[in-house]
Design a protein around this nucleic acid. Structure first.
Length: 211
DNA sequence: ACATTAAGTGATT
DNA sequence: AATCACTTAATGT
């Protein structure tokens, strides 16, 4: 069961009756790193509560080019899923497990009734919505002003934070994919960051020093 | 030793 | 900042 982990990350947020309901209606889902959770256009039937690990949320264009929007960590939920759940509509985003993760899946029907029933739930939804909105604005800022070097460093720091490891196991190509740019640009900027002493790199491994 | 994949570089748009 | 063309380095078979 997932009772202990749930209490550890959400116990201070939700009152006992709500915790009971989460235990009753939620189901635990374990995913491996790299596994896709939600594809664009897929119908949302459940809402995720992260217990451990991290999920990355991506957007995709017509040419199937990807762009990373933000990460979700333990104690978070996917704010995007609220709007989708409520309207019974389809997902606008893709969710991929960044690390191995444990997630409690809540059926949409339940979470809707909790909105009216539990004040703490309502607050939780509102808070995470706000947090996600803030992160989105941040990514928009860096996008709009096209400061790729800052964007790259932020991405590396986020990734290190989210995985709880300052060693990042990724190729330049994969990073380029996340930031929607070319591998050559990433290689050059990484070189620059290395010269500035902010990171060190080896094949398939980047160590973030400046956290 | 050879093929494959990741990373580095210079030039061009 | 993106793309091309090419080199160099690391890894796998």
């Amino acid at each position: 069961m997932f009772k202990e982990a749930l209490e550890q990350h959400y116990g201070f947020l939700f009152e006992p009756p709500l915790m009971e309901e989460i235990l009753a209606y939620g189901s635990l889902k374990k995913v491996a790193a790299g596994q896709q959770l939600i594809e664009i256009g897929e119908l949302i039937t459940h809402m995720p509560l992260l217990l451990s690990g991290a999920i990355k949320i991506m957007r995709e264009d017509e040419k199937s080019d990807e762009l990373l929007l933000y990460f979700i960590e333990k104690g978070d939920t996917c704010a995007m899923s609220f709007s989708c759940c409520m309207g019974g509509s389809k997902s606008d985003i893709r969710a991929v497990a960044e690390t191995d993760a444990e997630i409690v899946m809540i059926p949409v029907a339940q979470m809707e009734s909790w909105m009216g029933k539990y004040k703490t739930w309502q607050q939780f939804v509102l808070d995470s919505y706000q947090a996600r909105m803030k992160e989105l604005l941040q990514t928009i800022d860096t996008l709009a002003f096209m400061r790729m070097d800052d964007r790259l460093l932020k991405h590396l720091q986020d990734k290190a934070k989210v995985t709880g490891d300052d060693h990042i196991h990724a190729t330049h190509q994969e990073i380029a994919y996340d930031l929607h740019t070319s591998r050559v640009v990433i290689s050059r900027l990484l070189k620059k960051l290395e010269n500035e002493g902010k990171i060190s790199m080896h094949r398939n491994d980047i160590t973030v020093i400046d956290l």
